[in-house]
Design a binder for these strands. Structure first.
Length: 517
RNA sequence: GUCCCCAUCGUCUAGUGGCCUAGGACAUCGCCCUUUCACGGCGAUGACAGGGGUUCAAAUCCCCUUGGGGAUGCCA
């Protein structure tokens, strides 16, 4: 697919876009990267970008690289780095090269790559493709405001563009602070052949002499990203749509550095329900928050994959292996997607019910222990008990966080004094026929076996003898046993709870409504 | 302001000129299953933003308008 992509309009381009790259393409192994800046947690949009990169690499037999873009010294934190790494791992997006695992193109943090940037900067400056700029940010801002006032383009005025290199070096040597700007071409067009969007044309007159090195000596994003992508031999840049407008600047840098151009694929953004960029205003946006809320990584992956990508007109459930086998960039859509929490929840329910049982049990126990419902380690009897409990409620909830509430009454007496009005009424309905429920208590007490099958036989006989409908018995019984109106089947509950507990709870319920046995 | 991107049910999407009186999924509603809740099954409601072209034929191609998003940072 990729190899079939032609570049019909290459002739119109002032630079030989892609020709150099195309030549190499045949022999070059596919390398993609996810390059978050560690200025916060890994959010939904970032995770989706990471996933697409990961899936593309897997499908194409390529290498998936993780690189930390921490050139914003002010905002980058080590805590963010750790959150991002652990969220990536939680999602199962393991990287072939990057922090912790290393690789031959390291280091994989931009803060550790200064030497590489410095040599490239000097190369550009010496070649006259970049220049020292002594304007202060305040001066630049004044120009910008004035331009805005006049309705002109908000570009750098070019004050230092014509400074001779000797003069500039002399001023720098005297300690005058400076930034370095890229001398952007002002004629012609820069064309992006985007794998998702097709041909996108930018007139070079919009190009600003943007800063590539700050006064602090630290390179800016647009510069570092190009140097690193080139140095790391990245072949496909798959990233958010918000970078499309930066791409012409970067393409010009590749050309100035005489580096082959990678392919670009700009994926659409993820929006909140109000169609604006997804942000904290819309609720949880971090992957970690979803993990804590009881979502399964499998469901997150599946959901994220479907945000801007579809395989066909019917399939919605994909295992990670299936995604790795089926993902292609040509099926990525161009329009932004609203993140739908309800669909994620539905999908999570699907995964709760479909992951292999031992794994389901293991994760449930982990969750219950974490929330203090049970204490680890479990002995065989308890292990068996908890296993039965989590299995019986499996199709009743969607998030692991709902599990403790679902199974609470299996681990402590229901507080019948505190139940809601409906349940209370159901409990009091037993007063209409006290003898019936006394007889039920006796019947359950006489059972030799407490398995569901034995109960069924016994209770069937019982309702026939007593001439009542099963519901008359079952509902109040359920309230006695669980303190609530909804639960799994009463037989199943009774089998797990055991005869003694069942008799105690039934007696307690009866006592509460004034029926003594 | 300028530049760029985008536009199919409420939401995610299928659709690449005739297979479309537009298909699927979530959500919503109804029915069935049923000891309750859920699960599951069946069904219903519901969309090509608007206007011009091109064509025998347009959701699909072109133009305009409108709407949304992004960029315009010594953030990424």
């Amino acid at each position: 697919m990729i190899l079939k992509m032609g570049f019909p309009s290459v002739m119109l381009c002032p630079y030989n876009i892609n020709i150099k790259y195309q030549e190499k393409k045949m022999s070059q192994p596919i390398r993609v990267r996810f390059a978050p800046s560690p200025t916060g947690h890994l959010h939904i949009g970032g995770a989706r970008t990471a996933l697409f990169n990961y899936l593309f690499a897997k499908k194409q037999g390529g290498t998936f690289i993780l690189r930390l873009e921490d050139t914003d010294v002010e905002r980058s934190t080590e805590a963010s780095v750790q959150m991002i790494l652990s969220d990536m791992k939680w999602l199962g997006l393991t990287w072939d090269e990057g922090p912790e695992v290393g690789g031959e193109y390291g280091p994989y943090r931009q803060s550790g790559r200064s030497a590489i940037y410095e040599s490239k900067i000097m190369q550009l400056v010496e070649a006259g493709k970049a220049y020292f700029c002594f304007c202060t940010p305040e001066e630049v801002e004044v120009h910008r405001l004035a331009a805005a006032e006049k309705g002109e383009q908000l570009k750098y005025a070019g004050t230092c563009r014509t400074l001779s290199l000797e003069a500039a070096k002399a001023r720098a040597a005297q300690g005058e602070p400076y930034a370095i700007r890229f001398k952007a071409p002002q004629e012609g067009e820069t064309i992006i052949q985007d794998l998702i969007r097709g041909r996108v044309v930018f007139d070079n007159t919009i190009l600003d002499d943007f800063v590539i090195v700050r006064t602090t000596g630290v390179p800016t994003y647009n510069f570092a990203v190009v140097i690193d992508d080139a140095a790391m031999k990245i072949t496909h840049i798959i990233r958010g749509d918000d970078h499309l407008s930066n791409t012409p600047k970067q393409i010009c840098l590749y050309q100035a550095l005489d580096e082959p151009l990678p392919e670009f694929a700009h994926v659409p953004m993820i929006l909140g329900p109000d169609k604006t960029r997804l942000s904290k205003r819309h609720g949880a946006t971090s992957v970690g928050a979803y993990a804590e809320a009881g979502y399964l990584p499998e469901a997150m992956i599946n959901s994220l994959a479907l945000l801007g990508w579809a395989y066909d007109d019917k399939t919605t459930l994909f295992s990670q292996a299936e995604l790795e086998a089926k993902f292609t960039l040509d099926k990525v859509s161009k329009n932004p997607a609203v993140f739908d929490l309800r669909k994620l929840s539905w999908m999570n329910g699907q995964y709760i019910r479909s992951i292999p049982e031992p794994e389901y049990i293991e994760r449930s126990i982990e969750w219950l222990a974490q929330t203090g419902i049970i204490q680890l380690p479990l002995d065989d009897i308890k292990q068996n008990y908890v296993t039965q409990v989590v299995k019986i409620v499996r199709d009743k909830y969607k998030l692991l966080s709902e599990l403790p509430e679902q199974v609470e009454y299996f681990f402590k007496e229901p507080e019948l004094e505190k139940i809601d009005e409906k349940a209370r009424n159901k409990l009091e309905s037993m007063q209409e026929n006290p003898d019936l429920f006394k007889a039920l208590h006796a019947k359950l007490g006489m059972l030799k076996s407490f398995f569901v099958s034995a109960q069924e036989v016994a209770l069937k006989d019982f309702i026939e003898e007593q001439q009542v409908k099963f519901g008359v018995l079952a509902h109040p019984l359920r309230v006695c046993l669980t303190g609530r109106m909804q639960s799994p089947g009463v037989f199943e509950i009774m089998e797990i709870l055991g005869q003694d507990v069942v008799l105690e709870r039934l007696a307690a319920g009866l006592r509460l409504v004034g029926i003594n046995i």
